[in-house]
């Protein structure tokens, strides 16, 4: 199994940390992982993206131009990365703020209204974990228990009290992901 994923959105949406949590979860189940962020001035308030690879084999290039899956969290990223999804691949996006929706017919398209769900849950900080839950429902490449183990390992002890809230957010994402266009 190899999953090549891009997560793209605004800086501050938790794009990089979502990728990191996925990578940590992969390590927890003895897989190879790579996490390659875009870095530079564009990260300060602008767009941010990270490519994550989780694989059973040694990972060659951490640089990707074609993706098995794309998690898209703003219009700029949709415009930039929709074409990069492999035919038959997955595009998951939050429709919040999207004016031009994905148009491809040769990929599987899913929506998660994570921004509004996060507001309902009373914490905008768990936005990325709702998205992450939606992604794991579509692509269950890592087990939830390994996500939790990864969180425990990567977060400083003083934040461990927030892990149940993050788990709730993941479950919220799992429950609320909607298929917009699915290939037969």
């Amino acid at each position: 199994m190899t999953e090549e994923l891009i997560i793209a959105g605004f800086g501050g949406q938790g794009v990089l940390s979502m990728g990191k949590i996925l990578a940590y979860s992969g390590i927890m189940q003895d897989q190879e992982v790579s996490w390659m962020p875009s870095y530079g001035p564009e990260m300060r308030g602008g767009t941010a993206n990270v490519t994550v690879i989780v694989s059973d084999e040694r990972i060659s290039s951490p640089i990707l131009t074609i993706f098995d899956s794309a998690i898209i969290l703003n219009q700029q990223s949709l415009d930039k990365f929709e074409s990069g999804v492999r035919p038959g691949g997955v595009l998951l996006y939050d429709p919040n703020g999207i004016t031009r929706h994905p148009e491809r017919k040769d990929i599987n398209i899913f929506q998660i209204e994570a921004a509004s769900l996060a507001a309902e849950m009373g914490s905008t900080k768990i936005f990325n974990m709702i998205v992450f839950g939606a992604y794991l429902k579509i692509k269950p490449i890592v087990k939830i228990e390994n996500v939790i183990r990864g969180l425990k390992k990567s977060l400083p002890e003083r934040y461990h009290k927030l892990i149940p809230l993050n788990e709730d957010a993941i479950n919220m994402g799992i429950k609320n992901v909607k298929a917009i266009h699915e290939l037969k």
Binding site: K20, V33, W35, M36, I59, P62
Partner: peptide, 10 residues
Amino acid sequence: DGVIGQMMEK
């Protein structure tokens, strides 16, 4: 280089 410096791996 910037790739190896910035990327995360196990």
